[in-house]
Design a protein around this nucleic acid. Structure first.
Length: 314
DNA sequence: CGATTTTGACCAGCGC
DNA sequence: GCGCTGGTCAAAATCG
């Protein structure tokens, strides 16, 4: 996941959380027409004030959630690094490379899908799987220390046949192969920003869904994030866009704020609490049920079902 | 002209 | 040992 914080453009934060203001709700507001002009003006003011308050509240919530996710990302990376240091304690990755062309097995054990995230890259949605499950990581490092591997699934235009995953890093392609289990070719890339950077990635279209690109990252960058802001090297939290799906409300998080470091410990404790988990689920459910598209689609589906199977007449 | 991509060849691991 | 396969190399081609 570390290499996958990409999109820079958006500062938008649409969590669809909390009470949602629906346009047609406005028209359903009390229709009673006051003949008194001043009364209607003051009502209008009240509505505006109320709306502003709601907006403020929502933006506060959004800000808080943004910080939480940012902290979660920080914490995750910190934990990973700690774990690497504690358990791995092996010579620097990449430096101690095994003899060249040593085949690496892609055993299921290596890629653990316990930690799944998602993000939006240049208009496409990607889902990230990384090998962060602690048990398996521990087992893996005890048995055979290997470079960190993560997978990124990138939804692309079906017409787009290129094997390019824009992740903000600079890659140099060094090979392409057609593999046995997949008719589409696999492209091999190496990080070309730093000659010593050991990170490699493989990009191949999914055999099941040709519109999905599967990028497999191996290793960790030993330099900052680049290719943003006129090629300047950047580090720290990268912007993150999370999209649950086309029909679901989007959660757009901006992690570009690099100013103050929030209280990591406090936020992490909060996020681990069952209360936070419960709230998260509640907010997801709320955002779904408040989404007019969702409710409309649900109503359509139900009415469709009912018309297919009309209730038994008595 | 330097950087990047393409592509055929080569090499090593693995299963039989 | 042999063949298959994935991963990498490196020369040529292409691009900006």
């Amino acid at each position: 996941m570390e290499s996958s914080w990409i999109d820079t453009s958006s500062l938008a934060l649409d969590l669809s959380v909390g009470p949602r203001w629906l346009p047609d709700e406005a028209s359903r507001q009390p229709q009673t027409r006051s003949t008194h002009a001043q009364q209607s003006v003051s009502k209008k003011d009240e509505v505006e004030v109320g709306l502003e308050a709601k907006l403020n509240q929502m933006s506060k919530e959004n800000k808080m959630l943004t910080e939480m996710v940012s902290v979660m990302h920080y914490n995750y990376n910190a934990l990973c690094n700690q774990f690497f240091n504690l358990v791995g304690s092996s010579p620097s990755k990449g430096e101690a490379e095994s003899p060249r062309r040593k085949r690496k097995s892609e055993s299921p054990e290596m890629v653990n899908y316990g930690d799944v995230g998602s993000e939006k890259i240049d208009g496409v949605v990607s889902y990230i799987e990384s090998n962060s499950n602690e048990d398996n990581m521990f087992k893996r490092f005890r048995e055979d220390p290997k470079p960190k591997i993560s997978k990124v699934y990138v939804q692309t235009e079906p017409s787009d046949s290129s094997l390019v995953v824009k992740d903000g890093y600079q890659w140099r392609k060094y090979g392409q192969k057609v593999t046995r289990d997949n008719p589409s070719p696999r492209a091999y890339y190496r990080c070309s920003f730093a000659p010593t950077c050991p990170v490699k990635k493989k990009v191949q279209r999914s055999a099941e869904d040709r519109s999905i690109l599967v990028a497999t990252y191996e290793g960790e960058h030993n330099h900052g994030h680049l290719s943003r802001g006129a090629g300047s090297v950047q580090s720290g939290p990268q912007p993150c866009l999370v999209s649950i799906g086309p029909s679901c409300p989007t959660i757009t998080l901006d992690l570009t704020q690099q100013g103050s470091q929030p209280d990591l410990g406090r936020f992490c404790r909060e996020m681990e609490s069952p209360e936070f988990q419960r709230l998260l689920v509640e907010q997801m459910a709320t955002s779904l049920t408040k989404d007019p598209n969702f409710t409309t689609a649900l109503a359509d589906a139900i009415s469709g079902k009912m018309s297919q199977h009309p209730p038994a007449q008595n």
